[in-house]
Computed example of a mutant assay.
Amino acid sequence: MTNKKFISVLAIPLLFTTIYTATPASAETTPTPSTTTNSEELAKDQKAVNKALKIVLEKTNQQIKSGKENIKVSQYVPEINQNVSMEFVTKDISTNTQTNTLQKNTISYAVAKPSGRKAYYGKMNAWGFTHVLRGDFVYGGGKVISATKEVQNTGLTYTHSSTSSIAKLDPSVWQIQSKSVHKWLGKVGSVTGLGYTSYVSVEVYGSGTSAVRNASFTTGA
């Protein structure tokens, strides 16, 4: 999907991105099965990472509430000697048309003179991989009219697969959810199934605002 304008906490906070200034996860020392064989140690590290991501998420949404549209937040995790971060960006998209048509990966219907259109971008930098949820939404009359979504992943030592969906919680609140599976390359991943599953979700509102609702991951692919 072609990106028009962006806020880069995922988002959404997510951009939501939920947004964070940090060393990119892909540039960090990626954990390997040989260094994470102790399940108790791995569980402890993951708990520390998710705790840091919750802090990042809270800070991202605080900045969103204050009116910022280009957010980047990072948090150092001493247990893994790395930063985790979230970027979230939103931007107005100008439109000269009065009608929006159905697009790929889009829930949409025709509307006359929408009040506005915004792009969102949420990126989570986690543990050797990134998870991006991006798209745009149209709003008007206090309602969400349409929304698009796209998921992107990076991390050189993994294979990646993703799914996404849009849930209409009510006419003014739509939640865009995404899930990515990051499995170790080669025999390690195919035989053991080792890897991670990450989640990023963003909510968009009929007021033209948005927020990152989830940025987390679990072990196992």
Results as ranks from 00 to 15, higher is better:
K68D: 09
Y76T: 03
I64K: 07
N50L: 05
K59Q: 13
L42A: 14
A48L: 01
E41T: 15
Q62H: 06
K72Y: 01
E69S: 14
V49Q: 05
D45M: 03
S66T: 12
Q63S: 10
V77P: 01
E41D: 14
Q46W: 04
K65S: 09
Q75Y: 07
A52K: 00
K65E: 09
Q62S: 14
K51G: 11
L57C: 02
K59Y: 03
L53F: 05
Q63V: 08
K54Y: 02
N50K: 11
P78C: 05
Q82T: 11
L42C: 09
E58I: 14
K72M: 06
P78H: 04
N50Y: 06
K65G: 03
V77N: 07
D45H: 12
K59I: 04
N50Q: 13
Q63H: 08
Y76G: 00
K47C: 05
I64A: 10
P78I: 03
Y76S: 03
A43P: 00
S74Q: 10
K59S: 10
A52T: 00
I80C: 04
N50W: 02
I55D: 07
V56A: 12
L42I: 08
G67V: 08
A43L: 11
P78Y: 02
A52Q: 01
Q82H: 13
V77R: 06
K65H: 05
K44C: 02
E79D: 14
S74H: 03
V73S: 07
S74E: 10
K65N: 11
A48S: 08
D45F: 02
Q82D: 10
I71A: 01
L53I: 13
Y76P: 01
I71L: 10
P78D: 10
N81H: 09
K51T: 13
Q82S: 12
Y76R: 04
E58P: 00
E69Y: 07
K44P: 00
N61F: 07
N70P: 02
L42W: 06
N50C: 08
N61W: 08
K72P: 02
Q63I: 07
A48R: 03
S74G: 15
S74A: 14
L53C: 03
V49Y: 01
Y76V: 00
N70H: 14
E79K: 02
L57N: 08
N50M: 05
K51I: 01
V73R: 09
K44L: 08
V49S: 03
E40A: 14
N81R: 13
N50S: 06
A43Y: 05
I64H: 03
Q75C: 04
T60W: 10
N70R: 15
I55S: 09
A43S: 15
K47H: 09
V73A: 05
L53T: 07
S74K: 12
I71F: 04
N50R: 14
L53D: 04
K59V: 05
K44W: 09
Q63F: 12
V77Y: 07
S66F: 04
K59T: 10
I55L: 10
E41Q: 15
E69K: 15
V49I: 14
V49N: 06
E69I: 12
N83G: 12
Q46E: 14
K51C: 04
K59N: 09
K47G: 06
Q46M: 15
K72A: 09
A48Q: 03
K68I: 07
I71K: 08
N61H: 08
T60V: 07
K68W: 05
E79Y: 01
N83P: 02
E58C: 04
L42D: 13
